[in-house]
Design a protein around this nucleic acid. Structure first.
Lengths: 208, 208, 208, 208
DNA sequence: AATGAATGAGAATTCATTCAT
DNA sequence: TATGAATGAATTCTCATTCAT
C-alpha cells in the first residue's frame, strides 16, 4: 500500500538503523531488515540516503549528537572538583543506560574503516571531549588543585579513557560481561561503583 | 579441528588469519586471501576448521594466548608498587608495538556478536586478568598500601580499564588517532606518557 | 491514451521523451527525468500513457511523423533524375542535422525488441518509403532511364539503404565516428560528400 | 553439484552471452539467464569476467573476430572487379546467415554508449574495413577502372555502407522485415538480389 | 485532477563453502 | 590427500509503477 511516511516513521528509520548497526555491526547490518523494522520499503531508505554508508553516517551523527549534548553539561554549574567528577561519572552511566545503542554506535566506529565523513564526525567528538577535559584540567592546575607533576593533556586523556571504557562497560555486551567478571557483587550497585571511581580519580588528579 | 596445531604450516595459517582479521575485520576478511597468504589452498583451511567462525576462534585463541603470556609476568619479581605499575604500563605499550594484530583481534571481539566459543575464550582472559589484578590489589591492601575506602575489585577494574584502553590506543587505528588528539606533542613520547600514567595510577591507588 | 495529444504541454512531454530516449536509449531512459524535463509530474505521464513502452511508442510516432513529412517532398516538383537524387541526399543530411533525435529514435527501434505497436509504426514508415522509391524507380524505368537489367524493387532497396545509413552517419554517434574514419578530410565537407554520393547513385541507377 | 567446466562449456558461456546480448540488448540481457543457458552458475561467469561490461566486451570481441576474418578474404585471389564485388556480397550474405548473432552484436554497439574497450574494438574493425576498401578503390583507380571524378574514400564509404546495411538486413530483425517490405518476391531469392546489387555497385564504381 | 513519495520486484555482484579431480 | 573451480544464496541498490493526499 502506498502511504505517506508519517514524521514518526521518518524518525523510526534512523532509530531502526541505529538498532541494527549497533547490534550487528556495519557489515552484518541488513538494509532490508532495517527497512522492515522501520516499517518502510527499502526504496524509501534510498530516497533519503545515498547508500548504506551514507545512512550509517546519518545514524552515527544522530548518536554522537546525543553524546555531545551530555558533554556540554560537564563544565556547567558551580561545584567542587569531586562533585563535578561524580556528576560526570553519574551522567555517563545514566546515559549508557538510556542510550546504549548510541554508545554502541560510537564503539562501532572504533573498529573497521569508515568513510571520510564518519572519520570526520568521530574526530569532532574526540576534539570536543579533549578540549573540554583539557580546559578543566587547566582550570584545576591554575587553582593549584591538580597534583604537581601531572600534565594537563595526560590528565585529560586519563580521565576520558576511564569515561569511555565506563560507557562501553554499560552498553557494549562484551564490556558489560567483563564488568560483571571484575566487579561481581558490585556489578549491580552503580552508586557504589561511581563512588569508588570518584575516589580513585580524585586520588589520581588531586591526590586525595 | 582434525589435527592439533603443530606443524609450521599450521602456524602460518593462523598467522595469515590474524593478519587478515586484524586488518579487515571479521566480515571483510577473505578466506581466499588468507589461504593465499598462508600459501595453502582453501580446501586445506576447511579441512582444519569447520568454517570462518571456527577459524576466527582459532586465530583469536592464538592472539589471546600471547596476551595472557604477558599477564603472567605481572606478579613476578620483587619490586615496589610504583615500579610494578610502571613495569606493566611499559610492558603493555611494548606489547602493543610488537603485537598490534593480537590487540586488534582482542578489540575485534569486543564488537559484533561472536560464537559461544569466542565468548568463552574472551571470558577466560578476562577472568585471568581480573584474578591477577584483584590478587595484586588484595596484597596492596593487606600491607596497608591501598588507599582506605578503595575496594579491591573496583581498583582492579579501574586498573585494567586503563591498560585495555592504553593497548587500544597503541594498536587500533581509531584509538591511535584519538591519542594524538588528546596528547598532541606527548603523542610521540612514550616514556613521558608512561610516567604520567604511573603517577596518576599511584595517586589513585596509593594516594601519592 | 485518455486524451488526444493536443495541448502544448503534451508536445512538451513527447519532446522531453524523444530527447531522453534518443540520448540514453529505451532502457536507460528515466521516466522521472522525462517528467522533470517536461515540467510535469510522473503521475500525469502515466495518466496519458499506460507504461514506458506505450510512451515510447508515442515518441516514436512523433519522430516518424517528421521523417515521413520529408519523404513526401521527394516526388514533388519537376526536375532531372540527378537533381532529384541530389535534392533528396541534401534533404536527408539537412534533416539529420536538424532532427538528430528523430533519426536516433528511428535507429533505436532497429535494436532491441519492441512492442507490436512499435513494429506496426515502423512497418508503416518502411512501406511508405518503399512505395515512394519504387514508384520513382518505376517511373525511371518507364522513361527508359533506369539501367537495363535493374529491378525496380532492388533499386529502391539500394537507394533507401544508402539514405538510411547516411542518416545514421549524421545522427548516431557510432556511425558518425565511422564516417570520420572513412572520409577523413571529406568528413567536414557535406557538399563534396553529397556530390560524390549523387555521382555514385547516378552511375548505379542511370549508368552515368 | 561441483563439477569442473569442460572446455566445451567454456565456449558455451561466450556463445550464451552472444545469444542473449544479440537478442535482448546489453541492458535487458540478464547475467542469470546467460549463466542458466550456458549451464553454469553466475559465480563462474564472474570468475572469468570482471563484470557485465567486461563480459560483453569478450562476446563482442569474439563476434568481431569472425567478422574480421571474412574481411581478410576480400583482397585475396585474382579476379575481375565484378567477380570480386560479387564474391564479397555473397560472402557477406552467407556470413549473415551463418552468424546472425555476430552481426547483431555489431549492430548492438551502434546504439547505446559502451565502455572505452568496446569503442576501441569497434574502431579497430571500422579502420580495418576502411583500409581494405580504400586500398581496393585505390587499386581500381590506378588501373583506370574507377569512374572519373569518384573519390576513393567516398567510394569505400559508399561500398561499406551497402555491405553493412546488407548484413543488418539478413540478421537484425528490424532490417530483415524491412527487406521483406522492399523486396517482396525477391526476399527469398538471395542469388537474384546479389546479382542486382553487383550490377548497381558496378554501375556506381565502374560505370557499367 | 495532479502530485511525487512509496513500493518492491529484479538486477548485478560477492564470497563462504563444497567436492570432483 | 590437496586443490581451487564451481556453486548459489544473499546483499545492495534501482526505478517503473501506483495511489493516498
Amino acid at each position: 500500500m502506498l502511504k505517506k511516511l508519517t514524521s514518526e516513521q521518518q524518525e523510526c528509520i534512523i532509530e531502526a538503523g541505529i538498532e541494527e548497526f549497533a547490534d550487528r555491526g556495519f557489515e552484518k547490518a541488513s538494509i532490508k531488515n532495517i527497512a522492515k523494522n522501520a516499517g518502510i520499503s527499502v526504496g524509501v531508505l534510498y530516497k533519503y540516503y545515498k547508500n548504506k554508508d551514507d545512512f550509517f553516517n546519518a545514524c552515527l551523527e544522530e548518536s554522537l549528537k546525543v553524546l555531545i549534548g551530555k558533554l556540554e553539561e560537564f563544565l556547567e554549574g558551580d561545584m567542587t572538583p569531586r562533585e563535578r567528577v561524580k556528576k560526570i561519572f553519574t551522567a555517563v552511566i545514566e546515559f549508557s543506560h538510556e542510550h546504549p545503542k548510541a554508545v554502541k554506535m560510537y564503539h562501532e566506529i572504533t573498529s573497521g574503516s569508515f568513510s571520510p565523513k564518519a572519520r570526520e564526525l568521530a574526530k569532532r567528538i574526540e576534539e570536543i571531549s579533549s578540549d573540554t577535559y583539557r580546559a578543566y584540567m587547566k582550570a584545576l592546575k591554575e587553582v593549584g588543585l591538580l597534583r604537581p607533576g601531572v600534565d594537563e593533556k595526560a590528565a585529560a586523556f586519563f580521565f576520558d579513557n576511564l569515561l569511555v571504557i565506563m560507557q562501553f562497560s554499560y552498553s557494549v555486551d562484551y564490556f558489560d560481561e567483563r564488568r560483571k567478571i571484575y566487579l561481581s557483587d558490585l556489578y549491580d550497585d552503580d552508586e557504589a561503583l561511581i563512588e569508588q571511581m570518584v575516589t580513585l580519580v580524585d586520588g589520581a588528579l588531586l591526590g586525595r
